[in-house]
Design a protein around this nucleic acid. Structure first.
Length: 239
DNA sequence: TCCAATGTTTCGCC
DNA sequence: GGGCGAAACATTGG
């Protein structure tokens, strides 16, 4: 989303000349003639800010977008034409937010936001001492933007086993994890900027640990029941 | 052909 | 009412 925001900067200040999409989801006509004031991101959410309302886009699992091109057989949810190009969103969730964004969104939970507040994240994490780390990292109210892949990368980087229990992890280690979350977020952005060339993922989707070549475990873990890739040898279990 | 996977919300059942 | 699980949505690749 952060990368998308960078790429759509030319549309800021432009008026929507034409809007198409799925009427059931949203009345797209209200966008016509409205100027885009700004694009914002919060975790996995993307916001298109107009004078009187905001469009929220969430790509969910399968959503995707096209800039200055179309996908003919795609399920278009929202398409906007400007005088200098077009922006199309497919198979995603679109919603209108009427309230001022700052009243609805807590920017301090977003690992990629300048207002990201790691101290607050620490407080929230410590309030859930029985939670598994793999679940904690996926909690969007604490780590907005961390997904299943990033979760695996953060745990691998910090040598923490995904099934570790928050309350059993030393505070310094928790701190390291929280800091690493933001670092990994920006590493991922760099990886996207570089056209996704060489391996962005050190552990997710891999077969062997890049450190000691131990075969990587692949299991569904925690209450979130998401697939976790991890190295049993070099990721310590705190339990 | 079938299943799993970058995610989240909602509904039904204890 | 909380917590859990299943279902729903929808796309692509293996």
């Amino acid at each position: 989303m952060f990368y998308l925001k960078e790429k759509v900067q030319p549309f800021i200040g432009k008026k929507v000349l034409e809007a198409t999409g799925e009427p059931k989801k949203m009345d797209v006509n209200r966008l016509v003639n409205q100027p885009v004031l700004d694009f914002k991101t919060h975790g996995k959410e993307f916001f298109i800010c107009f004078p009187d309302f905001t469009v929220r886009i969430h790509l969910m699992l399968f959503g995707y977008y096209r800039i200055n091109e179309k996908k003919e057989d795609g399920k278009l949810r929202l398409g906007m034409k400007f005088d200098n190009g077009e922006l199309n969103f497919y198979a995603c969730e679109t919603t209108i937010i009427k309230e001022p964004l700052n009243e609805v969104i807590d920017w301090t939970t977003d690992i990629m936001n300048p207002d990201w507040n790691p101290e607050k994240a620490m407080e929230k994490v410590l309030q859930k001492p029985k939670l598994m780390v793999c679940d904690a990292l996926l909690d969007q109210d604490i780590f907005s933007g961390v997904g299943n892949k990033l979760k695996d990368e953060i745990l691998f980087e910090t040598h923490v086993h995904p099934e570790s229990i928050i309350g059993k992890i030393p505070k310094e280690k928790l701190q390291e994890m929280i800091d690493t979350a933001a670092v990994k977020g920006f590493e991922h952005l760099e990886w996207e900027r570089s056209n996704r060339t060489e391996g962005g993922m050190k552990i997710h989707y891999q077969k062997a640990c890049p450190r000691d070549h131990t075969p990587i475990h692949l299991r569904t873990l925690g209450k979130t029941k998401r697939t976790a890739y991890f190295c049993e040898k070099c990721q310590e279990l705190y339990a």
